[in-house]
Design a binder for these strands. Structure first.
Lengths: 105, 105
DNA sequence: TCCTTTGTTCAAAATTCATTGAACAATTGA
DNA sequence: TCAATTGTTCAATGAATTTTGAACAAAGGA
């Protein structure tokens, strides 16, 4: 099982914005931001869609470079690539997360 | 000819990010930001695509609330809705424009 | 070993998106 | 009035996206 992640220098703005320009994925990212202390598993997003569908959206976020996914046992631990994003596009993620917060308090 | 623009309070984050998550539209917005002194016409984007195609992308940006389009003669003057965006999602547009700048210096 | 848990992959269907050319509309100027 | 300029709308097409269920795979525990 390969879980390819784009390198930091390869992160593309349009691809990242497209990945975040979807309600389900925006909810996933907001949820990750709210629980950055410990990474979350796929199963913790099942209220947002079916198992298959969440797997699809999480793959999109990973391929865009927004999240990192590491396999641990049968689970996948998902976390925001905050430091990488900050280095490539300073301030971008924070402003998007802040904007997302004005919607779901 | 009606040119409907969403109200500031109705601006939706996912819709805005989806509108900006396209290379052509990101170029359009970056170009608008570089020339905010005076609004631009559709014809000034023809290097990014065909006349019909640019009209399509400009409609997307307008419907998302990113741009404002006013008819003047046979032309359309297009400008960023910077103040509205700032009020609804403070800092968002600036951070996206700054990120876009790191790509095309 | 067998079963459960946790996710992925695959194929199919439905939807949406992007692009094009032809036709149209409105304004301006000769 | 006639023609040129500036964009939009329409229909069609191909591509990409989203969603679903069935089948599969890997790890862990009884």
């Amino acid at each position: 099982m390969s879980l390819p992640h784009p390198a930091t220098e390869q992160l593309d703005l349009a691809i990242i914005l497209a990945a975040l320009g979807d309600p389900t994925r925006l909810s996933i990212v907001a949820h990750l931001a709210r629980n950055e202390a410990e990474p979350l598993t796929c199963g913790q997003f099942l209220d947002l869609g079916s198992k298959t569908n969440i797997s699809y959206h999480l793959a999109k976020l990973r391929e865009a470079g927004v999240t990192r996914t590491e396999a641990v046992g049968t689970s996948r631990l998902i976390s925001l690539r905050r430091a990488d994003l900050e280095r490539r596009f300073p301030g971008l993620l924070d402003s998007i997360l802040a904007s997302a917060k004005t919607l779901s308090p």
